[in-house]
Amino acid sequence: MEFKKYSKTLFFGATLAILAGCGGNAATQDQEEGAAGTDTEVQPVITSDGSSSDSAITGEQMGQDVENLEEKAEEVVAAMPEIETIYFDFDTSSIRADSREVLDMHVAYLRVNSDAKVVLEGHADERGTREYNMALGLRRANAVKSYFQVQGVNSDQLEVVSYGEEKAAVMGHNNAAWSKNRRVEIQY
């Protein structure tokens, strides 16, 4: 009795499995593969309403940072910072906490060398539409610009340009490439 029940389940299960395996066509299989590929992707969830991006840094933090910088500036003086690129999360222009250190080095340099000019080049990854990414790249560059400005860099030293997804730093269609392409390049 028990065995019969078991075999019946097995039997129908096998029927379904085989039919399902055979019934599909190339198109759906492709889609499944595509979907499987993106399942592994970890996308940052955007919870803020987007307004925080430009003003993500609060006044208090800035005050502290400025003080710290005063001290740091003594040490770095004329050394041009080596790291010139900071990275962003998908579809956001908020400056990540781990980018602050790099930006602060640039702020220190720019404040000491007030004749130095810098172009902030905003970029996006290939996903999404080109013009939206163009705007997103601009917002990222603008976010860096505001950060510099509130830290006391003269706005005459700063120029902003966006290339959207047109100038990828890394070729490729995976998370590793995308994360390297969502960036702002600080070019002297």
Partner: peptide, 27 residues
């Protein structure tokens, strides 16, 4: 609006403009 506003398109009757905005968070 303080969000991204881009990709305009005129309606065939010229009375409307479609656009993409990130005012709700995403486009």
């Amino acid at each position: 609006h303080y969000a991204i506003e881009t990709e305009p398109e005129w309606s065939p009757d010229g009375k409307h403009i479609l656009f993409t905005s990130s005012r709700s968070g995403g486009p």
